[in-house]
Amino acid sequence: MGNTKWWDIAVVSAAAILCLLLVANQARDRELVGAIVVIVVFVTVWFAIGRGQADGGRRATVAAALVIVLSGVGTAINPGMATIQVIAFPLLWYYAATLREAIVTNVLLALSVGIGYWSALGATLDDLLEATLVESISLAGSITLGLWISRISVESASRERLLVELRETQAQLAAVSRDAGALNERERLARELHDTIAQDLTGLVLLAQRTRRELVSGSPTVGETLDLLEDSARNALAETRSLVAASAPVALAEGGIRAALDRLASRFGRETGIVVSVAGETPPLDRDTEVVLLRCAQEGLANVRKHSAASSASLELTGDATSVTLIVRDDGGGFDPALDSDGFGLSGMRDRLTLVGGTLAIASAPGEGTSLTATLPRSAVLA
């Protein structure tokens, strides 16, 4: 409704057609001149006053009034000018702010043109009936078409608003998704850092302290401890590079999960002096499942190192048709699982398992050691 370029074309085209009709109908000179003047003023009103005044306003009211008057005057000069209604009726819909205003101005236009038509024909009773019939049909057609177009315009505007709201909602959902993705990535990195780099650094600190004691005491095993310190540092560097590259842990590069657990147990024993045994086998596992199991084993042994004061520990890996299970046991001092913990280890392990549909069970009591059981569903295991 508000595209002024097409309205410009419509107004100018209607004016040109009216002029051609007047010439074709061989209007008398005075009628021709008078009608052309009305047409020129009509076009001038559009470009000078009415153009761009869609949906009401003071200038739109003035333009509508002039359209009604000029249409009646032009038709009174020459009855062929009644054709001006083909553009006058739509212009009144264009200028109107409400449906009521549009209908009222359409009625006024029909009256103005009807009076002009009746006057031009001869002002007899028969002419009045003819003018009334013609204008009634014109008015009915204008109102019907106008209401239909207005309804389409309202529905179009409503759909446009809905589309804008949908786009805004999509943008908000995208922002929420990005935020959630960033949060999940931060949580993943926190778990990876805790399960790898933090534990490696803890081991390095303990080995450095052990080296210091051996140097002070002149222990002959200091060279072996230094080799172990270097090996641990290299392993931490490799894990860091693996984490940066977002690839699988270095420990899983050869031999799968069972070989990785054997190497983990051997290294842990050399660093801490705690004997760790490894037992059990599983069906073939996908790499993501192996990563989860290895991280659980690393976290379980990290807790043994920090809190248990154990002399031995074990890693037991089992699998069947429905699940795969890793059990980390130690003979240390144990603890009460019901008490709140301010550490990240066990909660991080539980979160990691939850992401793949797994569970973590803790069995412990003061003085009775600890058993951590990580279980993953069969769906995470390759057939």
Score class of each variant (00 low, 15 high):
270 R>M: 11
259 A>K: 01
22 L>T: 06
358 G>W: 02
241 R>K: 12
71 S>D: 05
180 A>G: 02
294 L>T: 04
312 S>N: 06
40 V>D: 01
176 V>D: 04
364 S>Q: 07
35 A>H: 02
203 G>M: 06
24 A>G: 09
218 G>D: 04
309 A>R: 07
264 L>C: 07
266 S>M: 09
112 S>F: 06
159 R>T: 12
348 G>I: 14
88 A>Q: 03
89 F>Y: 15
212 R>T: 13
289 T>M: 00
378 R>D: 07
210 R>N: 04
142 S>Q: 07
216 V>W: 04
214 E>G: 00
27 A>D: 13
347 S>K: 11
32 L>A: 15
251 A>K: 00
351 D>S: 15
238 A>R: 06
211 T>V: 15
209 Q>Y: 02
297 A>P: 03
200 D>K: 05
233 A>W: 02
354 T>F: 09
139 L>V: 06
378 R>Q: 13
181 G>N: 10
260 A>Q: 05
13 S>A: 15
43 V>D: 00
153 S>G: 10
170 Q>S: 14
54 A>F: 11
105 T>F: 07
251 A>D: 11
304 V>G: 03
141 G>N: 07
246 A>R: 11
281 E>R: 10
76 A>T: 08
78 N>L: 13
367 G>L: 10
22 L>H: 07
56 G>I: 14
166 L>K: 12
53 Q>E: 15
244 V>W: 01
321 A>M: 08
289 T>Q: 03
355 L>G: 02
310 A>E: 06
2 G>M: 09
349 M>C: 08
219 S>L: 04
239 E>M: 10
148 W>N: 01
248 A>N: 00
30 R>Q: 12
94 Y>A: 10
54 A>D: 12
240 T>Q: 07
6 W>G: 04
353 L>T: 10
38 V>N: 03
368 E>K: 10
272 T>C: 11
97 A>R: 08
196 T>C: 05
341 S>I: 10
258 R>W: 04
272 T>M: 10
226 L>G: 01
